[in-house]
Design a protein around this nucleic acid. Structure first.
Lengths: 119, 119
DNA sequence: AATTTATATGCGCATATACGCATGTAGTTG
DNA sequence: CAACTACATGCGTATATGCGCATATAAATT
C-alpha cells in the first residue's frame, strides 16, 4: 500500500520502488498513442464492438484489434464476447479524470502561449 | 475551447480533432518513461538542481539533462538558472493529480489480482 | 461439413527514442 | 586569460513499437 504512494509521502517518503515506477510508466505509455486515445475516446460513449471502432477511428481492422489488446491487457478496457462479435468498454473509470486533467492542462498552456503573442 | 473537451461532450460530441489527440498522446508519452518519472517524483519535494537529481536518480549527467529538457519542453517542469547551476521544479500542478490517479488505479488493480489468487 | 463473418495474430519493415561516450558552452575562480 | 565547474548537446547504437499484409481462429449459417 505504501509502495504506491507517489505523491505527498510522509516526511522522507520511502522512495518509490523501481518496480512501481516502471508500472506507472507503462500505464502512461498505454495512453501515449493517438490510435489508442481515439479508441478510448470512442468508448466514452459506451460499449462498442470492433467493427464499429474500426469505422469510427478509420484504422485497419488488424491495427485496431492489436491496440484493443494492448488496452485490455492494461486493464483500461474490458472485453465481452457475444457470438461472433467482441464488445469493448472502459474498465478503468480513472481514465476519464486522466484525460480531463491532461486536456485542461493543455488548454491552459496553449491559451497562455496564444496570449504571449497577443502583446 | 470545445476542441479540447475530450470527455463528456454534448450529445454528438464534436469528434476530438486529430491535432488535439496527438497533443494529448505526446503529453502522456512524456510521462511514460521511468527516468522521467523518477525526476518528477524527486521534484515533488521541491526545486532541485541537476546534480542533486543526478545523484538521487542514479542516472548519468547526460541522460538526466536530456530528460529534463524533454520535461521542460513539455511544460511539465520549469527551469531557473542561477550562476553555474540550473534549478528545475514542477511547473504543471496537474502532474500531482495525474500521478495520484494512476497510482491509485494500479493499487486497486493489483489488490484485485492478489485477491483472485487468495481463493 | 463447408462457407461466411467477426476478430485475432505472425511476420517484416520503418521509425522513434533511450542510453553511453565524447565534446561543447556558459559562468566562476584563480 | 587559464582552469575549473555545472550543465547541455552531437553522434552512433540498440531496442521498442506502430503499421501493413497475409493468414489464423472462432462462431454462426447453410
Amino acid at each position: 500500500m505504501s509502495t504506491f504512494c507517489f505523491v505527498r509521502g510522509m516526511p522522507k517518503s520511502p522512495a518509490l520502488s523501481e518496480a512501481a515506477i516502471e508500472l506507472i510508466a507503462r500505464r502512461f505509455s498505454v495512453l501515449a498513442e493517438p490510435m489508442r486515445l481515439r479508441l478510448v475516446h470512442a468508448l466514452f460513449q459506451g460499449e462498442k464492438n470492433v467493427n464499429a471502432l474500426v469505422e469510427e477511428t478509420g484504422g485497419t481492422q488488424a491495427n485496431v484489434s492489436r491496440h484493443l489488446q494492448t488496452l485490455t491487457q492494461a486493464h483500461v478496457l474490458a472485453r465481452r464476447k457475444e457470438g461472433l462479435q467482441v464488445f469493448y468498454s472502459i474498465a478503468d473509470p480513472t481514465i476519464f479524470k486522466l484525460c480531463e486533467l491532461v486536456c485542461g492542462s493543455l488548454e491552459k498552456q496553449l491559451t497562455k502561449q496564444a496570449e504571449a503573442f497577443g502583446r
